[in-house]
Each structure stands twice: as structure tokens, then as C-alpha cells.
Design a protein around this nucleic acid. Structure first.
Lengths: 207, 207
DNA sequence: TGAATTAGGAAACAATCTTTCCCTATATGG
DNA sequence: CCATATAGGGAAAGATTGTTTCCTAATTCA
């Protein structure tokens, strides 16, 4: 045994007093209030209430309000990407995988989740014009969605479930418009038609 | 001649000192700043600069900032509706009129206008959750767009340029998602494909 | 055990933003 | 010409917000 060297010190406790709150749970609440009210209408007081922290604690953990927002944004994207990835994993053909993804978007645009809204859409609209870094993240997110959808289309073309004549990239870009638009009308309380109906219509784009 | 009674006193001057600024031009500037920065990020100072008025004058003409916004919103909708109506008046068939309207949305989502963004989308996302009156106006606007597009589809079905098998109302609701989504991605600086290409793809929804 | 380090929390602080106030200017009505 | 009424504009009040400070608590390192 080696007493002087400890190999693989996994998760060695950091120096001072340990954090008492769960960062992920706190960020989940931040996501909620930012999604509901937007960035500017969410005050530090709102974050205090939602995250269950005092202002001092928030400013210990984050540089400023914007940093809280960026952290919430990143977590939101990570959770969302997981959900979309999972939705695209069950079905057999590329066409059916695409259907499932579109259905997820339509579902997310209805009911309580629909009214809460999408954080990406929210800051695309509220912040993209003024905040370069936010704009870059929004663009990255939209770009990722584009290549994801284009990939599904290509998979469908490979397994013959989608016509070889359609253009995967351009069609994917239009599909992104469609999905982001669902989130807009869902937030406004005028959601898209019932999910399977919406998807039936949307799938004409890849006929 | 009757000296005591003046019939049809068209545009009788109101009582006190007349307004010096042009309300429509001022509102056009308000539309610009609200579209660019959103509601909350637009300060009275921004409105003072944009509209060319002192704070006192703004509060003489409007009850508060929210009233300025609602007036700007109404003017925006009126200007936009005119534009859409005009776009739908030139072509011969219903199908072509629908094409022209979709092309207008795609165009509006690109370049400087695209980055400025759509005021309806902006407040749908930023205010619809918290402000009932704004939510009602946004819903009204979306509903109007829906019936407008559904009408074009019906016209196309009547003149045989659009298949009788498609459902005008549900398809119109999906088209609204698509158009609003274009404004979102346009604002984020990742606009939809070049206009005629976007429209070609979108028109598959009514095949 | 004591020094060093970090978290928690309330209150103070500084900046900003919306709104009001007040005074002047320009119009109408009799 | 005087009373009445409304607009223009800037200063300042009033309210809100984001941030800092300061003290206490909990933990590690030597």
C-alpha cells in the first residue's frame, strides 16, 4: 500500500464549506421562471424565491444575473437535447423517427408546458439582437436542430422510408421554422392542432 | 345660408394647444425600438430618443409605457395586415395567392427586417404569459392569420388550384406555426432558406 | 486545534427606470 | 382680451432592480 500518494482521488471535496443546495434543482427553477417571464422581467427577487437562495448565495455561485441565465440556458439545452435524442431512438425507420421528433415538439407546445414556453425561442426573440454570446448559443442550438433533422431525413432516405428526391438540408431548415413556430403559438395559448394531426400535416414536407 | 348652425363640422379642431408631432411617425419609431429590444428592455429613455419627445409629452399622449406599447402594437398589426392583404391581391389562383403570402413572410424573415423581428412574435413570447390584454391581442392576431390562410386555401379549392382533400382550417393552423417560426429564426440571424426555395417546400403542405 | 477557504443570508448601496410635477407655450370660446 | 384647455419639456420624486458588503457557519489542511 502507498500511504503518500492517493490515486484517482475521485470527487475530492473542495476546500471550504460545501454547497448546501442542489445546483441542478436550483437551475431547473431558474429555467422555469426565465421561461415564464423572460430574461428582463425576471428579477433577482424572483430568482431568490424560485431557487430558494439568498441574493448573497446567488452571487457567490454566479457572477451576475446574466451568468445565472446562461447556466440555466445550458442546462435547458442539455435536458432538451436528451429528450429529443430519446424520442428519435425508438422507432424503426427514419421516417418514423422523424415523426416521433415532430410529435415531441407538438406535444411540448400544448398545455402547461406549451404556455411555459421554450427558453431558446424566448431568448432568440428577447436577447439575440443585443447579446452576442446569447445569439451565438441560440444559433448553435438552431444549427444543431437543423443537422439533427437533416440526419433523420438522410436515414429515412437510406432505409427507403423517405423519398430520395427531397433535399435534406433545406427541408430541415424549414422544419426548424415549423417547430420553433409551434412553441410561439403554444406560448400564446393558441397551440397547434392535436399532435397526431399536426404531425400528419407536417410530414407532407418530406413526401 | 345658415349662420347659426354649421353642418358637418369635419375635423373640428380640438380644444387646447394642438399636438406638434405626427403620432403615426412617432409610433413607427416606437415599433422599431420595441421590435429590436423587446418590451422590458426598451426604457422610456429609448422611447424619448426614438420618438423625439420629452418624457412629459409621452405621458401626456399615453397613460404609461404599456399604453405606448399597445398603440405601437395596434399600428404594427394594421400596417402588417395591409401588406399581407396587398400580397394576396395580385395573383390569379388561390394557390398563387397563398404562395405570395408565404413569400412575404419568408422575405420579412431575412435581412435587416428579419433581425428587427416581428412585434407579435416578440410579445407573444415576452408578455403573453403575464399580460392578459396583450395575450388577447396576440391570440386575435394569430386567429386572424389562421382564417386568412384558411380562406386562401378555400379559394384555391374553389378554383381547383388546390386539392379538395386537404383540411383548410387545420392546415392553416400549421401554416401559422411555420410563418411565426420563420420570424423566430430570422430574428436569431439564421433565416429560412432563400425565399422561393422556402415557399416551394412549404407549399407541399397543401399538396 | 488554528489558519485558510468557501457558503449562507440579511441589510445596505448604487444605479436605473417609470412616473409625476410644474412651468411655459399655443390653441379655442365667448 | 380673458378664461379654459391641452401640448411641450425638463427636473425631480418615487419605485424597483442588480450588486456589494459584512457577518456567521461549515468545512479542509497542516
Amino acid at each position: 500500500m502507498n500511504k503518500t500518494v492517493s490515486y484517482l482521488p475521485v470527487a475530492a471535496r473542495p476546500r471550504g464549506r460545501p454547497r448546501e443546495f442542489d445546483m441542478d434543482k436550483a437551475l431547473d427553477q431558474a429555467i422555469r421562471v426565465f421561461s415564464e417571464h423572460g430574461y428582463h422581467a425576471t428579477s433577482i427577487g424572483d430568482l431568490i424565491d424560485a431557487m430558494g437562495l439568498a441574493s448573497g448565495s446567488i452571487y457567490k455561485a454566479f457572477r451576475d444575473k446574466r451568468a445565472v441565465f446562461l447556466a440555466a440556458f445550458d442546462r435547458y439545452k442539455s435536458l432538451r437535447n436528451d429528450k429529443v435524442d430519446r424520442a428519435a431512438r425508438t422507432a424503426e425507420s427514419g421516417r418514423e423517427r422523424l415523426r416521433d421528433v415532430l410529435a415531441l415538439y407538438a406535444d411540448s407546445s400544448r398545455g402547461a408546458e406549451g404556455r411555459r414556453g421554450c427558453l431558446v425561442v424566448g431568448c432568440a426573440v428577447e436577447l439575440a439582437t443585443v447579446d452576442r454570446e446569447v445569439a451565438a448559443r441560440v444559433n448553435g442550438s438552431l444549427a444543431r436542430n437543423e443537422v439533427f433533422l437533416a440526419d433523420l431525413i438522410r436515414q429515412g432516405q437510406a432505409d427507403k422510408s423517405i423519398s430520395a428526391r427531397i433535399d435534406p438540408d433545406q427541408t430541415a431548415r424549414v422544419l426548424v421554422c415549423l417547430t420553433q413556430g409551434m412553441r410561439v403559438v403554444g406560448k400564446a395559448g393558441r397551440p397547434p392542432p392535436e399532435t397526431s394531426l399536426t404531425v400528419d400535416i407536417a410530414m407532407k414536407l418530406i413526401d
